[in-house]
């Protein structure tokens, strides 16, 4: 260990004695911690109905509407088209899913996907099409109104936030999620 402390010169031994007083015994937390964790998890467990909604709302199962404009090159566009193809999930009462086009610049990537709460954070994600000649990847999703958190997955492993998203949040895991607000659209 002394070799690691050469920078301390004659204080190396004193440092070792100081650091030696630190207690290295394991610390056992009270059993109430486990009980509290499991109680909170049970309280958060989604109902069968909401799990079904999450499954139905996963955009990978929905046919994507086409022909929507890409504004200002690299940007997140909210395309407010109320039409919902048959067979797509039913949005909450009084509103409809909204077509959203996500684009991401990754000229050197061999594949890009997107994942988020709308895809149950599936690590495989929903693939983006591309790249176009300018290295732009894109996908069109049909999302229910509300806030959605998402990230792009580059080459299957590198999670990146969307630099063009209007805002981001810390995910508590040392990464940032991009935030997308899908406004509610009333069915016509």
């Amino acid at each position: 260990m002394k070799q690691e402390h050469e920078d301390l010169g004659p204080d190396a031994e004193r440092f070792e004695r100081i650091i030696g007083v630190l207690d290295r015994r394991s610390l056992r937390l009270p059993s109430t911690v486990r009980a509290a964790v499991m109680a909170r998890i049970r309280a958060e467990r989604p109902s069968a109905r909401s799990r079904a909604w999450t499954w139905l709302a996963a955009p990978r199962l929905s046919p994507l509407a086409a022909g929507l404009a890409l504004a200002a090159g690299i940007a997140v566009l909210l395309l407010l088209r109320p039409a919902v193809p048959s067979g797509t999930p039913t949005a909450p009462a009084g509103s409809v899913s909204v077509s959203v086009r996500l684009v991401f610049a990754a000229p050197r990537a061999s594949r890009v996907a997107v994942t988020g709460d709308f895809a149950s954070w599936d690590p495989k994600g929903i693939p983006l099409a591309g790249p176009q000649g300018d290295g732009i990847w894109a996908v069109e999703l049909k999302l229910p109104p509300g806030l959605h958190h998402y990230v792009f997955i580059v080459d299957g492993s590198e999670w990146q936030h969307d630099p063009n998203a209007p805002s981001h949040v810390e995910d508590g895991l040392g990464q940032r999620n991009s935030v997308l607000l899908v406004p509610e659209q009333k069915a016509s």
Partner: peptide, 24 residues
Amino acid sequence: SEDEAADIIQESLVRAYRSLQRCK
């Protein structure tokens, strides 16, 4: 603080559960 450590471990485990699908 041992009490604060217990709170942090509890919160961390709940967050881990919420984000489990992001554990690559």
